[in-house]
Write a protein that binds this DNA or RNA. Structure first.
Lengths: 368, 368
DNA sequence: CCCACACTTGAATCGCTCA
DNA sequence: CTGAGCGATTCAAGTGTGG
C-alpha cells in the first residue's frame, strides 16, 4: 500500500523502502513533511570499509595520522550533508534520533549542534549482554549512545511522558536504558544462515524510541534502513514509516520482514495520556453547578491557610483575592501554585480536594 | 613538599595547586612530563530561567561566570587550546580523561580526535541518585560521559586490567559505572554551610579512574582542579598530582582538604559494586522485549478476571486502567495487589504466570 | 539506643494558551 | 508579538528531630 501526502516538493512515499543513497533519496522528499527521523549511520570509516562520499566514490581506509584527519573530515562532510537534508525534511516540531559509538558519536553530536538541532537528551543503551573485551586492554564496550534532538530550540517536540513513566512502572524514565542486544529468533538470517545485517538493532530499543517521541499516525523516516527494524516497530505501533536503503540484499530482508508485521489493535495503542491533554475546567463551573457555594470556606491541604469562595469563582483570603492559583501562591509565598491540588473543602467533617470535583465534571464530559 | 623533576622547559611543581588560568599555567609546564590528565572542564550549560521543583522550592543551578561561553565556536576555541597544551605536556605513553554532559561532550570528543588523541573508551557514569526531570519534558538526565584517550594511537597506555576486574568481583569492568553523586559528608561546604563548589565529583569516580589508568608514583594533572578531588584521590593512592585552579575560594578549600588526606585512606574505596538486591524489572520491559504483545490478554490466576496489555505496559480491564498492580487491586476490590503473582498469560493452552518472564530477565541480567 | 517521619538537595539547556 | 494566567510536575539519599 502506498499512501501519499502532498507537499511543497512532491508526494510522500509512505510505508515503502526507497532504494538508493540516503542523501540523494532524501533530496527528493518535500520540506517539513516528516515527524521523526531515526538514523543508525555507518559508525566509522576505519572499522568499516563501507563509507562513501556523497558522490559515491569510496573513501580509502587508511591508518596514518595525516589520513586519519582526512578521514574524519570526510566523515564530517558526509554527516553534515545527510543531517542537513534530514533537517529540511523534518516538520518544524519534528525530532531526530541518531545512534553511534565512541568512534562516531562525537562527530554526530557536534554536527547536530552546529546545524541548529537542539539536543534534548543523550541516551545510553546499556547492553545487558555485550561482547567481552577479549584482549583485556580496555573496558568492556558495553553501551552505545543515542542522541535525541528537536529540529530547533523552539520546536514543540512530542514526548509521551506518562506513557514512558507507565512503561517503567511509575517512575520517570531515565537516560540510561538496559536492553539486550538483538539475538535469537529476532536476529534475521540470510539464505546461508549467516546474520543478514552486521548491526541489527533490537526491536525493544525502537519500541521505546517510537513510543516515547511520536504519536499514532506520525511518519517516521529511517535513512539507513538496513533490515527495517524501524519500519517494523513503527508499523506495529500504528505509525507510518519510510525507509531508505542502498543495499538490495538488506531491502529484500526488510520487505519480507515488514510483510509479516501486524499492527497492534487500537486499544493496545492507546497509551497513558498526560493530564495536560485533558479539557480545561474553569473553577467557576464548580460554583455554577452548585458543587461549591459562594461563601463556603476552602482550606489548604497543608492546613495552614483558608479562604472564602465568591460567586464569581475567585477566592478571598487574608489580604488577598484572586483565582485559586493566585491566592494559593500568595499565601505560600511561592512563585506559582496549582490551586486545584492546593485547596480542599469540608464534607461530613472530612477534607476533600477540590480537584475531585473537577474530575467529576471531566468524567461527565467524556461520557457524553 | 615540592618535588621537582627535570624537563625540556623547566621543573615540574609536583603536589601543588597552581593558581591561574589553565592554559597559561599549562604553558609553563615542560613537554612530555605528565602521565595522566583528568579534566572536568566547564560544561557550557545554557540555562534560561529559574527552575522550581514541584514543591515550589528553587533549584540551585550552575550559573557561575566560568560556565558561560558566547557560542559553540568560543567553547571550541577554548577547548582546543587547553587540549593542545595538555597533549604537549603528556608523556608519549600518557593518557587523558575528560568528563562532560550532552551539552559539551560531543565537542570535547570531536576535538580530541581532531588533535590526534586516540579514544580508548567512552565511559558512562550512571548516577544512582540523579536529580529528576521536574517538568516531565524529557528523560531524567541520569548519567554523565567520560572519555578516556591516549596521547596517540601508538601510545602504550597504562591499564590495570586485573585490578579493575578484582574491583568488579572477578568480572571485567564494563564501560558503564554505577556510582552515587557526591552528597553527605563528602560534599564540601563553605563557611556559610553552602556547597563549596557547584559540581564536586565523587571520590569513588576518581578512585576508579586513577586506579585503572595509572601506576604508583605516576604524576596526575588536573587543569580544572576545583575542590581537589583528583588530588585527594591521587594522594590516597600514592600518585603525585598537580592542580591548576583559577578561583581562590576553590583553592583554599582544596588546600585544606589535601592537608588532611592520608595515603591509602580506605574512605574512597568503592561502595558501588555491592548492590545485591534483585534488580527491579518494570512490567513494560516484557512488552518492549516482545515477551508479551500489546493487545494480548492476561487472566488473573484465580480465573475471575481478565485484562488487555497496552503498548506502554499498562492494562485495561472492565472500566479500569493502570499498572498490573493497580488493575489487579481494583478488580479484586483490594487495597493493593502484587500484579506479578496475580496475572498470567496463555501459551499452548496453559496459564503461565507473568512472574516467570521477569525471572527470565533477571537470569539474563545476572548472567552477564 | 532505634525507628519513624519530615525536610533538604543534586552539572537542568525542564510551558502552553489565549487575549 | 508580548504578557498574564492557568496549572502540571520529582527520585534517591542524605540529614535532622522527636518519641
Amino acid at each position: 500500500m502506498i499512501k501519499t501526502c502532498s507537499g511543497k516538493a512532491g508526494a510522500l512515499p509512505i510505508n515503502t523502502i526507497l532504494p538508493g543513497d540516503c542523501i540523494a533519496e532524501m533530496a527528493k522528499l518535500p520540506d517539513a513533511s516528516v515527524d521523526l527521523i531515526f538514523a543508525d549511520p555507518p559508525y566509522n570509516l576505519q572499522l568499516k570499509g563501507e563509507l562513501h562520499r556523497p558522490d559515491n566514490s569510496r573513501v580509502d581506509a587508511v591508518d596514518d595520522a595525516w589520513d586519519q584527519f582526512a578521514s574524519f573530515e570526510a566523515y564530517d562532510r558526509f554527516t553534515r550533508l545527510w543531517l542537513t537534508e534530514a533537517r529540511r525534511i523534518l516538520k518544524p516540531d519534528g525530532a531526530l534520533w541518531v545512534i553511534g559509538s565512541y568512534h562516531n558519536v562525537f562527530r554526530l553530536g557536534a554536527a547536530l549542534q552546529d546545524l541548529g538541532f537542539w539536543i534534548l537528551n543523550d541516551v545510553v543503551w546499556r547492553k545487558s549482554n555485550p561482547m567481552p573485551n577479549f584482549r583485556g586492554k580496555r573496558f568492556t564496550n558495553a553501551h552505545e549512545t543515542l542522541i535525541w534532538a528537536s529540529r530547533s530550540e523552539e520546536a514543540k517536540y512530542t514526548f509521551n511522558y506518562e506513557a514512558l513513566k507507565a512503561l517503567n512502572e511509575g517512575i520517570q524514565m531515565r537516560s540510561d536504558w538496559v536492553l539486550p542486544i538483538c539475538t535469537g529468533h529476532e536476529r534475521l538470517k540470510d539464505g546461508n544462515g549467516d546474520k543478514a545485517h552486521p548491526t541489527q538493532k533490537p526491536e525493544a530499543l525502537l519500541h521505546r524510541v517510537i513510543l516515547a517521541t511520536t504519536s499514532v499516525g506520525d511518519v517516521v523516516l529511517d535513512p539507513f534502513f538496513g533490515t527495517g527494524t524501524t519500519g517494523a516497530v513503527a508499523k506495529m505501533l500504528g505509525r507510518d514509516w519510510i525507509g531508505i536503503e542502498r543495499e538490495a540484499a538488506y531491502r529484500d530482508v526488510a520487505e519480507a520482514r515488514l510483510a509479516k508485521v501486524r499492527k497492534f489493535d487500537r486499544q493496545a495503542l492507546e497509551v497513558s495520556a498526560s493530564k495536560r491533554a485533558e479539557p480545561r475546567v474553569p473553577f467557576g463551573q464548580l460554583i455554577e453547578r452548585g458543587m461549591l457555594r459562594p461563601g463556603e470556606e476552602l482550606w489548604s491541604l497543608n492546613g495552614r491557610h483558608k479562604a472564602k469562595v465568591r460567586a464569581d469563582g475567585t477566592l478571598v483570603g487574608d489580604d488577598v483575592r484572586g483565582s485559586i492559583h493566585q491566592v494559593g501562591a500568595a499565601l505560600e509565598g511561592a512563585p506559582s501554585c496549582n490551586g486545584w491540588t492546593y485547596w480542599a473543602f469540608k464534607r461530613d467533617g472530612k477534607m476533600v480536594p477540590i480537584d475531585l470535583l473537577r474530575q467529576q465534571i471531566r468524567a461527565e464530559m467524556s461520557a457524553h
